[in-house]
Write a protein that binds this DNA or RNA. Sequence first.
DNA 1: ATGAAAGCGCTAACAA
DNA 2: TTGTTAGCGCTTTCAT
Lengths: 337, 337
Amino acid sequence: MTQGKPVSIRDVARMAGVSTATVSRVINDNGRFSEATRERVERAIAESGYVANMAAKSLRSQRSYNIGMIVPDISNDFFSAIALHVERTLAASGYSVFVCNTGNSAERERAYFTTLTSKLVDGVLCISGLNELPENLLPDAIPIVCIDRYPASGRRIPRVSSDDVRASRLAVEHLIGQGCRRILYISSYTADYARQDRATGYREALASHGMAVRPVDTLFVTGTRPSMEEAEELVARRIAQGLDFDGIFASSDHTAVGALKALRAAGVDVPGQVRIVGYDDSIYTRLTTPQLSTIQRHTDQLAERGCEVLLQMLAGKTPPAVTIVPTELVVRESSSK
Amino acid sequence: MTQGKPVSIRDVARMAGVSTATVSRVINDNGRFSEATRERVERAIAESGYVANMAAKSLRSQRSYNIGMIVPDISNDFFSAIALHVERTLAASGYSVFVCNTGNSAERERAYFTTLTSKLVDGVLCISGLNELPENLLPDAIPIVCIDRYPASGRRIPRVSSDDVRASRLAVEHLIGQGCRRILYISSYTADYARQDRATGYREALASHGMAVRPVDTLFVTGTRPSMEEAEELVARRIAQGLDFDGIFASSDHTAVGALKALRAAGVDVPGQVRIVGYDDSIYTRLTTPQLSTIQRHTDQLAERGCEVLLQMLAGKTPPAVTIVPTELVVRESSSK
DNA sequence: ATGAAAGCGCTAACAA
DNA sequence: TTGTTAGCGCTTTCAT
């Protein structure tokens, strides 16, 4: 199989002294055939080094065994952690996965949908994508599943995500429990509703403890530059106006690290004067001094549940519309003495 | 294009009142046809929402416009940084990319090669893979390019990598210049010769400065567990035997961070008593206290050069056998006062 | 400049 | 149990 024309089912058929249909039956283990035939065919396959031509199979059967995985940026550790498990899980079921980096561009996402349609993908997994799924761009027959985002679409698209409202409430209540009286919220780039859930959790926690929800206490990261840097600047500016807060809930570890840097640069003690909780339990959390408290979202489960849902759809079943993966508050040094 | 049978070239032909051959010619802009025909066909394509069926195209033309990207673990930040740029670059040339996580398993790599062959990929990009490329598994017609590794293979396989010997020498000479008299080398899991280059640079630097190269001064990480943890343990154990060294050159930032943690835990001042230089300039380097000195390898260039080489091969040209991407020593707090 | 037709490798309906 | 055959959507001779 290392040179010349690749061997096809016809070559195998000739070698085994049967028809191509029989070879196909053996390969797909469907139609009926004698045990003797199976052996002859399998021997021929092994000896010839036959490798199925998926283009032909796909053309004929309308199944490519390819899945499109849409992601804002595979180099982001949260997404790549999910991507790893997605690929592992789908490969175990015989699927190959295309990576598609949208860079949060609706235009690129749109283009990928067309490409994926063209390549006859059997399904699409959208990870933390845009809110607006391009309408009517993917044939209805191709199932989509969203991980960590709420799709707005005419189609009913199942999603798998964390319970962000609860997780955020937990984080903020923890800060309150630690004695914080004024807590800032650092909002990440809000391409998706999930981030809004975090804001909701923040507000709920404050409200349920009779604390004021002040608009000026939410710091917005725009996503135009690395969010760590943006957060660092935002917090530095805020500190310059006076240290009128004693807690920070950041909707990502990236921004939490930025905040921590600004605080340390200004000589503010963490967790002594200001306590911080981040989000995602990325590797970063264990590298900083102090180590960051954070929300663990279990990327492995997010990925596996997402694949399960997709595989169910591929099998013609109707999966749950929403799957929630549990989260946990991980308390480290940045938020408790 | 959202439901029913997808529109094919035949439908377009009918709409435009031409033959399928003509539609094909217009689509591929090759054969000759009148300007009037082009317009009619293009209108029909636009109105019908025609999307090419790549399975059919591939079957016919033996080109899939798919590339296989083999990687040990996409969740590793060095690989995912390369993966991002690979996908970006190839997508710009019309290719889709399959991710394949081998987990450094030769068996899985082997399986992927078969799958990729079956899916008619036009080329394969191996990133930091195993040394032994499975022989005779991929048809000779499918070009392979290796990034950051030396393939051992019967085939002549172009590679793109950093000048690791030079980079390592630079790093160690910097430590020596900073006054270090005994420098440890933390070797990462050596699935590839590239890591051996780093050991070579380390030895060369010591030798050229008349310093002894002691086998006990090389700490081996096995790769069976997260290398950060392994390194931390190895260094902690070494410290327990007495602090007889004043410099560490780690062949990855992961292990450098592990070393730093062990040192800090033992109350050893960095860079006061021991200086450290890592490798890769990962995000980690700016999160630790002190910030880590490291080697910048330019993942973007590694990726882009790799893609260029592959695209050249796809265009039938013969690319250089070896492409070296420059490296730089980045001095931060961990190695200089 | 355009059409008719063969065929890429495979599967499935139909015959035997 | 097995073979024959049509056809998936496309490109590419070969005619015209």
